[in-house]
């Protein structure tokens, strides 16, 4: 029996070491796999960025930024599209921000969290946040551009529809931000005799600003890069001037890129790349702004 046990022990030892061996190999394979995934994702991105910047280099100058659209690739520019984007996105962002914060405050502070109503509204908002943007475009075409409001294919139509599109995202992020404010802050305020409104106005909202700002700027970035609903809403291919009011016609940066990219003449591809760089820089600037706001007003409890 003793010899058998010894043999068994030896056997089991070698077995153990071989198991450890395969486990370590698996570990290494897993690590290599992770690096490979990172490389593929990052490599593709870097390649795309470098390619775009190199292609864009010849057109990235003040002439391109200040020129208006043109049927000739040499003197085309994006001023109208740039200001069109600002005219559409800035009001959309501001109005949705206001509505989103009000909704979030109401849902977080005034409605019982476990009530049926709260559950119903939350479910709807989350569903809306996942609706494809083209659906908002069709909705806008039927009810804002035509139908009930009949605003036509103007800046205010586009602004309202983009506002509706980013509203659910903003509500969700604002709610998260408000929920993250510790309840001790509220209890302290109430203990000192403040009313509900004073508590929200002076304690909860200031504490939630970083989260709200980050969420809404990301929402605005999305609106800035959106093209599908605006195609439905008649964003134009050729506009010879900057918009001067909310009932003007418009074009936006993503559509300018789309138009350039689908032109037959090869020279337009350089303009497309340059417009992409401008849009990227604009988006990066917005994201940077979000980071700065978050860092400036970050508090630790």
């Amino acid at each position: 029996m003793t010899s058998q046990t010894l043999a068994e022990t030896l056997d089991s030892r070698s077995l153990t070491s071989s198991v450890v061996g395969t486990r370590q190999t698996k570990d290494i394979f897993f690590l290599v796999g992770l690096w490979l995934a990172l490389l593929i994702a990052f490599g593709t991105l870097i390649t795309l960025l470098i390619d775009t910047f190199v292609t864009a280099r010849s057109r990235l100058n003040t002439d391109f930024l200040t020129a208006f659209p043109s049927p000739f690739p040499e003197d085309t520019g994006i001023q109208a599209a740039f200001f069109g984007s600002l005219w559409v996105v800035v009001p959309a962002g501001l109005v949705s921000l206001f509505v989103a914060v009000c909704t979030a405050v109401f849902l977080e502070e005034f409605v019982k969290q476990d009530s049926r109503f709260a559950g119903f509204v939350s479910l709807n908002i989350q569903t809306l946040a996942g609706v494809p943007s083209i659906v908002f475009g069709i909705l806008g075409l039927a009810f804002v551009a035509r139908g009930a409001l009949a605003w036509g294919f103007t800046i205010r139509t586009a602004s309202v529809v983009l506002g509706m599109m980013i509203l659910p995202i903003m509500i969700v992020s604002s709610r998260e931000a408000i929920r993250a404010v510790p309840s001790s802050l509220r209890e302290g305020a109430y203990a000192l005799g403040s009313t509900r409104w004073q508590c929200i106005r002076r304690q909860v909202l200031p504490a939630a600003i970083p989260g709200i700002a980050t969420g809404s700027i990301l929402g605005i970035s999305r609106a800035l890069g959106e093209s599908a609903p605006l195609i439905m809403l008649g964003a134009l291919a050729y506009v010879s001037s900057n918009p001067a009011g909310f009932s003007d016609y418009y074009t936006v940066l993503p559509l300018a890129i789309f138009k350039y990219a689908t032109e037959a003449q090869v020279e337009f591809q350089y303009a497309a790349a340059a417009a992409i760089v401008v849009l990227l820089v604009l988006m990066l600037a917005l994201n940077l702004l979000a980071i700065i706001i978050r860092d400036r007003s970050r508090k630790s409890w």
Binding site: T66, V281, L288, R298
Partner: peptide, 27 residues
Amino acid sequence: KLVHGEKKSSLVAKIVVAAIFVPLIVG
């Protein structure tokens, strides 16, 4: 809480924003 590197990031932001807007306005 002051975050390290905050000054730097805001400077970068200013440069980026200026790089877009100044040529447009001047132009």
